[in-house]
Every structure is written in structure tokens, then in C-alpha cells.
């Protein structure tokens, strides 16, 4: 197997706060192969954004980072943000600078990393904006963010992130803040540009439905840990962690037209007061005495791993 574009080796991130240490991310490991799309899925607060920001090196100073982050086999801190790896954020409304035009903001990256002259950079930015399917890109490029809709702004963000053809793109819930119809358009755009540029993508989402037909690999996170990781098809066909099973129940069914929208009982644990063993135990219908110890992420079948004492679940579910 070729060198992964991104490899996390037991990444941990803690925040020292007034109320104590918040262990936002703990022992997270995964790999992303070149050109591949990895979906990171989990409920709000499970550490998805923190993981992405750690990869980008954009965590605030209060963060304590442990473990290793490798970009193309080397320390990610040596990678150049904006050129080697880029990120699209959760909040399109506020992620663009209100004081500069859309075109300028895309051109800025091109000037910095490709050494283009201002005019050439602006032209390249317009070109990039039209590739992001912004109609009338030359005019839009001269507009300020407040003159653009949310979907349009997210297209600008995507154009900006992909302008220098990074090897890796981190998308942090790129469509959460948008209308449903716009969501689908943005996802389609990401797919299209990803195929064109060969960029590997880490797609962060809390919506399993979004990743079903797009992602190659899926990592499910719960309370700061990866609880299950597998190729997408396998994960959807045979989920091995009780949390994933619950999430699949909670995700709007795309097939079968059942429209069932089950949800998982209970709430996410307080990050300051995590349960000692398996963090899902308080909500887990399958919990047993042994769950007081933390289960390791272990392979249940080739390429498919889960962090659960009772995995593989097949027998449990059959029973």
C-alpha cells in the first residue's frame, strides 16, 4: 500500500479549562490513502472539529496535543497549510473575511503558494470560482461576502481551499449550515472537484446518510474516540459497534422507504466527567460487566475494526 496522505497515530487533544482538563480527543488513529475519501462521523461534541484542527495545526494555544500526525509520511507540522492541505469550515457565513472581495480571498492563496502576480492570481481565482460552479464568476469575484448567499460562500470557501490543489482537504460539516437543496449541490461539487484534482478528503459529518454513497472509508467517533472504522460498504452492511448500530437507526433511511428515525437513548457524556470504561456504556443496550474496562479498537474482520467487547455483534444481534 502506498504511503497514506494522512496518518493519525494515537492523537490526543486536551484543553486545560477552569473546570479541569477536557479530553476532547483520545488515542485517535486512522489513515487516509491518496485520493480517498474518509468520512468521520459522530454526534456533536465528539471531537471531530478538534481532530481536523489538530491536523491543520490550528488548535488554540490552550490545547495539549499528544500522539503523531503524519502528512505524506512526515510530521504534518512540516506541511504547508493552504498548499499541501486545506480546510473548509463548518460556518460559511463567518469564515470569509467581510473586508475583502471573494476573488481577492481566493487569489491570496494563489499569490502566496504559486507566486502569481496579483492580476494573474485574480484571474486564476475567477477560473477557480467558475469551476466551483459560481455563475457569473467574474462579477461574483468582485463582490464582498455579505453580497453572497450561504451556499455561494461555501462554494467560495471550497474554491479557496482547492485553489492550490492540496493533497488533502478537510471538510468540517461543510453543509450543516445550509438548506437541504444547497447541501446536495455542495456535496456533489465536492465529489466532482475531488475526482478532478485527485485530492484526498476527510469529510466530517454527523449525518451518516451523507456519506453512504460517497465515502470510501468511515470512522465513527464517540466521546473523543474512534469506536468503529471500516470501508463504507462494510460499515453500512455489518456495523460492529452498538453506537454505529444506533446511528444507522438514527440516520434517515435512504433505502427501503421505511423513513424510520430511531434515536439513541441517553445523552453524550460530559467531557469533564467521562465514564471510566467504555464511554458508550451508560447508553449501551448490550453493556456487560466487562464494559467497565475501556475496550481497544480491534479488528473484527480484515479492514474492519471496532472498540467493543462484544464485537463482532452478529451473534449478539442474532440472539
Amino acid at each position: 500500500m502506498s504511503t497514506p496522505v494522512l496518518e493519525l497515530d494515537s492523537l490526543s487533544v486536551g484543553f486545560a479549562t477552569d473546570r479541569g482538563l477536557v479530553r476532547a480527543v483520545e488515542a485517535v488513529s486512522f489513515r487516509v490513502a491518496p485520493g480517498e475519501m474518509l468520512a468521520v462521523v459522530g454526534e456533536s461534541g465528539c471531537g471531530k472539529s478538534v481532530t481536523a484542527l489538530a491536523v491543520m495545526g490550528l488548535l488554540p494555544g490552550s490545547a495539549q496535543v499528544g500522539g503523531r500526525i503524519l502528512f505524506d509520511g512526515r510530521d504534518a507540522r512540516e506541511a504547508q497549510r493552504g498548499r499541501d492541505l486545506a480546510m473548509v469550515f463548518q460556518e460559511p457565513m463567518t469564515s470569509l473575511n467581510p473586508a475583502f472581495t471573494a476573488g481577492e480571498q481566493v487569489a491570496e492563496a494563489l499569490r502566496k503558494h504559486r507566486g502569481l502576480a496579483p492580476r494573474a492570481a485574480f484571474d486564476a481565482a475567477v477560473e477557480m470560482l467558475s469551476r466551483a460552479h459560481i455563475p457569473d464568476a467574474a462579477r461574483r469575484a468582485r463582490q464582498y461576502p455579505h453580497q453572497l448567499s450561504g451556499g455561494m460562500r461555501q462554494r467560495v470557501m471550497i474554491a479557496m481551499a482547492l485553489a492550490c490543489r492540496p493533497r488533502l482537504l478537510l471538510c468540517d460539516e461543510p453543509t450543516t449550515a445550509l438548506d437541504v437543496t444547497v447541501q446536495a449541490q455542495i456535496m456533489a461539487l465536492l465529489d466532482e472537484l475531488r475526482r478532478e484534482t485527485g485530492t484526498a478528503v476527510v469529510l466530517i459529518t454527523h449525518d451518516l446518510g451523507v456519506v453512504a454513497d460517497r465515502a470510501d472509508q468511515v470512522a465513527v467517533m464517540y466521546a473523543g474516540r474512534v469506536v468503529e472504522a471500516a470501508p463504507a460498504a462494510q460499515l453500512f452492511a455489518t456495523p460492529q459497534h452498538p453506537y454505529t448500530v444506533g446511528l444507522l437507526g438514527a440516520a434517515p433511511r435512504l433505502v427501503g422507504g421505511g423513513g424510520r428515525l430511531a434515536s439513541i437513548e441517553g445523552t453524550v457524556p460530559d467531557p469533564l466527567n467521562l465514564p471510566p470504561g467504555c464511554r458508550f456504556a451508560p447508553r449501551c443496550p448490550f453493556a456487560v460487566a466487562r464494559c467497565n474496562e475501556a475496550p481497544p479498537l480491534a479488528e473484527v474482520s480484515p479492514g474492519h475494526s471496532a472498540a467493543c467487547w462484544r464485537a463482532p455483534l452478529d451473534q449478539v444481534l442474532a440472539a
Binding site: L58, M87, F89, N97, A109
Partner: peptide
């Protein structure tokens, strides 16, 4: 944060 993410 976006500006930093651009590598400026």
C-alpha cells in the same frame, strides 16, 4: 482562522 488555514 480561515486566513491561517490558507497558510498566510
Amino acid at each position: 482562522r480561515t486566513a491561517r488555514a490558507k497558510g498566510l
